[in-house]
Every structure is written in C-alpha cells, then in structure tokens.
C-alpha cells in the first residue's frame, strides 16, 4: 500500500491533476503487453537428410523437436509475462498479457506448440499449408508478418515479438531481422538480459563478441535472444494437462492476406541448389618409437616439408 501511495504522491508532485484514492486505478498505466514468440520445429537428430530434388530438409519419418534456440525465446516470453503479473500484484490489476506462440510447418508441428503451452504459453497458432512448403527466409518472414498482423486483429496490439537467435537446421539467423523489416519495426539481436519492462520501451542488454551493449528499445519491437538469457523450465503438470487439450488455431494460406505466389517455394527469392559437406583431404602419418625417436622423425619430416 505504501508503494501505491508513494506513486500517488509522486504524481501529485509532478503537477498532474489531483487524484483521489477512488480514481487512481484509471490513472495508473497498466502494463499490457501481448507477446508473440516465433518457434520452429527442427529434426531431433544430427543426421539431417536433404531432398535432392528441392534441396530442402526431409522431415518425414524423423522425430521433430522445438528448435533449441527457440526454447530460450519461449522461456523469456513467459518470464516477461510473469514479471508483468508480479508488477501488477503490487496493487494494480488489468487485462493479462498474453503469450502467443506461432510456427509455420507441417500438421505435426502442432506438437511443439503444445510443448510451448505446457511451459506457460497461452495460445498456439500453426501456419500450415502445402503452399507454404519450401519457403526461404524471405517467404517465411513475409508469411509470419502477415500472420502477426492477423493476430493483432484477433487478440489486440502485439508489442513484442521474440525469436530464437537462429535455427539448428537452416542456421541462417535471418528470419528475426527480416520479420522486423517486413513489419517495419526496430530489431535487436542477441539479447542476453531484459533489464526493464514498460509499456513504451524495453531496456535490453545484448551480447556482442567482445562486449555488452545496453539499449532502450521502443515498442513494438522484434528481438532475438541469446542462449544464456535464461534456463528454460521443465513443464508443469498443470501446464502439461492444459497443453494436451488446448485448442490449436490452424491458419491456411486462404486465412492470411496473401497470394499463393507470395509464399512457399514460389514466394522465395532464393533457392538452395546444393547442400554438401566440404571434402577435406588430410594426410596423416603416425610416428612410433620412444619419445626421442619420435621427435627425431618429426623434425626430419618438418624439415623435408620446408616447414621449419
């Protein structure tokens, strides 16, 4: 209560119109931030197979998992929501912030949305349509941007869009920044700490190779998070039960404000024509004998090669 009064007092001091205890609720700005977190399902294996025709990933018959980098984005989205609820607990109540997870993929990508719901995400949205297949990062970010516009129409203003740093399979790290471009929003990558939360801005720390940088980012914004930002939680039992029966919204191309030639393979500006592992030729020779002999042989060899 003391905190409420001091807030009330500060407002009076700053010359704002006098407020009574009866109407302070209306004057306190509620933090209401709807968050979208973009996630992707990736093959849960190191043996990634590429379709030789399309040069895209073969997903059939391979167990899919949520992209590990995205689990940090999901966790951070849920933590931001919990922080907002905590701040509200100090005397203010308002409409709850929502966390919406969105993914583009085949029907079974529904599983990673349920996984996200089990750790605290409120709503899962799946963009699934044959026409979306084979999308490059441009077509993907375009489709996601359209879907986020539609989410705004259905759930209200979206203030924050969170992405993982990159995916485990495609590895480009492009979708986040491209999404910001498509939505004409500021973008901050490699965020390692959410320092302050407010209706109008976030104070964020990002991790560069040799330094940290602190930014005040106006909302709405797109951010991608680094691995060290948090330690993702284990699902709760209640969360797992909710996730099992939660309805998953599925949108097809016809549900979005897009033409089929703008999405999927046909909407892609780039096409991977070949994926291969570089062939490295390495000659090795193992010297045997006691240490002195080995040193002798190695020295001779290096000299004969002109290295020393």
């Amino acid at each position: 209560m003391r905190q409420i009064l001091s807030q009330f007092g500060t407002d009076c001091d700053s010359g704002a119109a006098p407020r009574t205890m009866e109407n302070w609720y209306e004057h306190r700005e509620m933090i209401e931030i709807n968050i979208v977190v973009c996630i992707k399902q990736v093959p849960g294996t190191t043996e990634i197979k590429i379709d030789p025709q399309t040069n895209t990933l073969i997903r059939e018959g391979i167990e899919s998992i949520i992209n590990p980098f995205d689990t940090y984005a999901v966790e951070e989205a849920v933590r931001i929501k919990e922080r907002i609820a905590q701040q509200s607990k100090e005397g203010f109540s308002g409409p709850e912030s929502k966390v919406i997870a969105i993914t583009m993929g085949p029907p079974q990508a529904e599983n990673i949305l349920r996984e996200a719901i089990s750790v605290g995400v409120d709503i899962g949205v799946l963009l699934s349509d044959r026409a979306l297949a084979g999308a490059d990062t441009l077509a993907t970010s375009f489709t996601l941007a359209k879907a986020i516009r539609k989410l705004e129409r259905e759930f209200g203003k979206i203030s924050l869009i969170l992405c993982g740093r990159q995916t485990l399979d495609g590895d480009t790290g492009q979708v986040g920044p491209e999404l910001a471009q498509q939505l004409n929003l500021p973008c901050l990558g490699y965020v390692i700490e959410v320092m302050e939360i407010d209706n109008k801005y976030f104070k964020l720390k990002r991790l560069m190779e040799d330094r940290y940088e602190v930014f005040r980012v106006p909302l709405p914004a797109v951010i991608s998070v680094s691995k060290g930002i948090n330690e993702p939680r284990v699902p709760s039992l209640r969360g797992a039960m909710r996730a099992k029966s939660a309805p998953i919204t599925v949108w097809r191309v016809s549900d979005l404000d897009v033409k089929s030639e703008e999405v999927g393979l046909s909407g892609s500006a780039t096409q991977v024509i070949k994926v291969f592992s570089p062939h490295i030729e390495r000659q090795s020779e193992i010297f045997t004998g006691d240490v002195d002999t080995q040193v002798e042989k190695l020295t001779q060899k290096l000299q004969s090669l002109g290295v020393v």
């Binding site: 939680r233 699902p235 209640r238």
Partner: peptide
Amino acid sequence: KEIARADLFALFVPEEYGGL
C-alpha cells in the same frame, strides 16, 4: 523450486485444498 513450479508438490494434496 523447479519441483514446486512443475506442480509435483501438488501431488500430495487433495484437489479441494489446491492440490492434484
């Protein structure tokens, strides 16, 4: 804390008192 957050302590308690 992690065990608590995962609702595992709720397993001890009947539903009418906030458990599972």
